[in-house]
Design a protein around this nucleic acid. Structure first.
Lengths: 323, 323
DNA sequence: TTGTAAGCGTTATCAA
DNA sequence: TTGATAACGCTTACAA
């Protein structure tokens, strides 16, 4: 591996001069600088990240953490992060929960964007309290080094449920996500609030606990079909489960929306193709904004007010106007 | 940041003893080992990756590189890589082309899996020749440190085209991907070969150059619709473009497959929902296998024979039997 | 079984 | 404008 020493030797100067050139210090003669840069190119020199990180304790790399490979919209979040990071001369590395803490704790990264729920609040708070900037997605943590970027789930969910009521739906089923997650709670609360405001009753037996995966939606729908009377609308806490439910209905000869309407949340790629009514989350923007706040925080512009992103309803064929 | 020194001080031993414990060396007393491990936990010590990499020159981290955020099946490749890597006590980091060379050249990573075509062959060969193990996906590079894992495009494409001919199709259009990529070349060659074998003529005006993105398929189909006579089957070099084409047809009142059949390649999530006939690539397995070869190569079991993965045809509603 | 000390590639301080 | 040198956190001979 060619290092700074090799360059120094080839150029007939000291390592510190090479280092100064590479870091854009102005205390180097023009002629020397040129010569050194040329030699670096010729010998295809790349600064060793490990040595750099070790000595300087700083890093222009940020870390993004996620672990769920089923949700293709995560790629859009990454896309947004990547674009902002590139525009700001930072590097981006991505890792799963398994190695996340390791990379946060070594000084290879200057900050992290955390999506995976498996990274526990307490761990993040501990790391953040050592002045390590963190942005968390989809949850709120109260700490002077942690910024939260969350989607406003409540308002669009309210609006969608009210829209369903306005279209004549009265008997609802609900397929929930992992119960402890903040977004699932918000979505469910909005659902219950609107029903209550409209004096529509909801029984616990119409609630199905899922895990945000397609399979759990499929299962929920199958169970639903076993009951005496099926609701006229099945509200799902995300798209994957809604799609699973739609497949179960299709496999059992139940028509959507004639026999039962279905709604989701996320607006994933499949939602459009399957004509699923859902709430569209601006994922690219989410990633972009998260990266922006993180890099601003790394640069010392402390800002940890939770940021709420708004989402929009997409009315599609999986819901009709009930006669 | 708590380092090995702090642990040593707290335990009343030397740093080397701590290091030996952390690296599982057996030259440490049982009592000492226990005590040190406890202190590490209490003080939530994490070894500094930079220091470690710098000194040892080795790394149990591998790098995966990709840059195209439109293709959601990439997540499945990552999933396969991630699973194999976790099972083998390695770490995985992912980065885009922008910072890829940097992470390959510092000794933070022990090897790389390269997907992005923007990483040039010459660059990879140069890095590999410094004994850095590399696995490339979707291309073949002849170098003793580079393993190629490629999909067999030719055979299933042949089979699919022959299947179309057998179903009565005679007038074909073709939407190609980026012309220099090996997989596009193979797919197109299989297409032409089968037509020739069946004495079916193909004119250059029926070839449309795309870029594997949905939009280019949409555009190709729009252009196609301007011509005098449209073919009875449009073969696309990947699913995204096929889906774009299907949308263009739908938007213009052209029925699939009654007016024109469409085929793709990849079997992405949307393909199933849209009833697109396509070739299914086992992406999870691709990632898993790539990771396996990479880690074996890192461990010294040199093996650089190109590996071909086979793919299967999925006949779906976008193709009918022509009367 | 444990400790001492050198050195990995880099940056930063200070002297020349 | 340049160079010598210490230090970052860790591993590894080798000495005790």
């Amino acid at each position: 591996m060619v290092g700074i020493k090799d360059i120094a030797k080839a150029a007939g100067v000291s390592v510190s001069t090479v280092s100064n050139v590479l870091n854009g210090k102005k205390n180097v003669g023009e002629e020397t600088r040129e010569r050194i840069l040329n030699i670096c190119k010729e010998m295809s020199y790349y600064p060793n990240t490990a040595g750099k990180a070790l000595k300087s304790g700083k890093s222009n790399t940020i870390l993004f953490n996620f672990s769920d490979f089923d949700r293709s919209f995560y790629l859009k979040i990454i896309n947004g992060i990547s674009d902002y990071v590139n525009d700001n001369e930072f590097d981006l590395i991505i890792c799963t929960e398994k190695s996340c803490e390791k990379y946060m704790r070594s000084n290879l990264t200057g900050g992290s964007i955390i999506l995976d729920k498996k990274m526990k609040d307490e761990v993040l708070i501990k790391i953040a309290s050592e002045h390590y900037p963190i942005v968390v997605l989809d949850r709120v943590i109260d700490n002077p080094y942690i910024k939260s970027v969350v989607v406003n789930n409540y308002d669009p969910m309210r609006e969608m449920i009210q829209g369903l009521v306005d279209r004549g739906y009265r008997h609802f089923g609900f397929v929930g996500g992992p119960e402890q997650t903040a977004d699932n709670k918000e979505r469910y609360k909005a659902f219950r609030d609107v029903l209550e405001e409209n004096n529509i009753s909801f029984q616990q037996k119409s609630y199905f606990a899922g895990d945000y995966r397609e399979k759990s939606g499929y299962t929920a729908a199958k169970i639903l079909l076993l009951s005496q009377e099926i609701p006229d609308c099945l509200v799902c806490a995300n798209d994957n489960m809604a799609i699973g439910a739609m497949k179960a209905f299709r496999d059992n000869g139940i028509r959507v929306p004639e026999d039962i309407a279905v709604t989701g949340f996320d607006n994933c790629d499949l939602a459009e193709a399957m004509e699923l009514t859902t709430v569209s989350i601006p994922n690219y923007e989410r990633g972009y904004i998260a990266a922006r706040y993180l890099i601003e925080n790394i640069r010392g512009k402390r800002n940890v007010e939770p940021f709420k992103i708004s989402a929009k309803i997409k009315w599609r064929g999986s819901v009709a106007v009930k006669k």
